[in-house]
């Protein structure tokens, strides 16, 4: 039973993630006053990439990308979606904090084998960025855990459905805003697109990926997008009782994210650190203090 649930969850997450990729390209082009690609374009891309030859730079190169993808898929199991929560009884938020670093780590392993200077720059940027957003993320998680007195996300969703959403209740409002501020950095979207930066370092960690590797990297990005937004919906928007409602909530957050993505230019890495360690960290810290005082 639990295996079936896992399978459904992975397929749903994949579908939503890939749909979001297509939606982001469509909305972006509408904002640019273009017609834009069909919304199925990422699916076509992935089919094409799986049918293309690919060159490998060694066993670690293959292993790294699979590790990265696996890390993102495993996180899906720990996040309840509607009533489906196959593994969320164990670990909860702590596990997510740990596994979240597997994505960058896998890409770094993979890129180290390829010895392309653009990859090293991209990887170093990715880790610096991870270092910058992990601080506010930890503070946000602490605030949520302290407020609800539990690390289980299922419990948190349950309490929220009985009371207010935590985004709407005062003690956790600041933490919620801080999470929204670091969300683009978490997903590598435009103000923090400096990891990929195609014009600058030729798509950074993906520079040597072609064919199947690029397809796996795209899938990883899709899963990662799903996880980042799903975490926000679960922790702050009260989760949902059924997947459809859950998806609607995710859609709202994602469209907000695309609008930010479409209008903003790219930060430099030093500006990104300065921003991430200033505003989101400050908000999250104040939020944590408020939670400690109120409870």
């Amino acid at each position: 039973m639990i295996v079936l649930e896992m399978l459904i969850l992975v397929i749903l997450a994949l579908a939503i993630g890939v749909f979001f990729l297509g939606l982001s390209r469509k909305i972006m082009s509408r904002i640019h006053w273009r017609y834009g690609p069909p919304i199925t374009q990422p699916i076509i891309d992935i089919i094409k990439l799986f049918n293309q030859d690919s060159v490998s730079h060694g066993s670690l190169f293959n292993f790294g990308i699979i590790l990265s993808l696996a890390g993102s898929i495993v996180m899906v199991f720990f996040l309840p979606m509607g009533a489906m929560c196959p593994m969320s009884s164990s670990g909860g938020m702590l596990v997510i904090l740990y596994i979240m670093l597997l994505g960058p780590l896998g890409l770094a392993l993979s890129g180290g084998e390829a010895a392309n200077p653009n990859i090293s720059i991209g990887i170093s940027r990715k880790f610096i960025l991870a270092l910058s957003y992990e601080v506010p993320l930890l503070l946000i998680f602490l605030a949520v855990m302290t407020h609800y007195g539990t690390i289980s996300i299922v419990e948190i969703v349950k309490i929220q459905s009985a009371n207010l959403w935590s985004f709407a209740s005062l003690p956790l409002l600041l933490s919620g805003i801080a999470y929204l501020l670091i969300l683009p950095a978490l997903l590598g979207e435009r103000p923090f697109e400096l990891i990929k930066a195609p014009q600058e370092i030729s798509s950074g960690p993906m520079a040597e990926y072609g064919g199947k590797f690029l397809a796996l990297a795209t899938l990883q990005h899709a899963f990662h997008t799903f996880v980042g937004i799903s975490l926000f919906v679960n922790l702050f928007l009260g989760g949902a009782s059924n997947p459809g409602y859950f998806f609607l909530k995710m859609l709202v957050v994602f469209i907000l994210l695309i609008f930010v993505n479409a209008v903003f230019p790219r930060f430099r890495i030093d500006q990104a650190i300065k921003y991430l360690w200033k505003w989101p960290t400050l908000l999250a810290f104040i939020g944590l203090i408020i939670v400690v005082i109120v409870d």
Partner: peptide
């Protein structure tokens, strides 16, 4: 892009 033609950064 409406034809699916998209510039990419590297030849790979």
């Amino acid at each position: 892009e409406r034809f699916g033609v998209k510039p990419v950064a590297t030849p790979r």
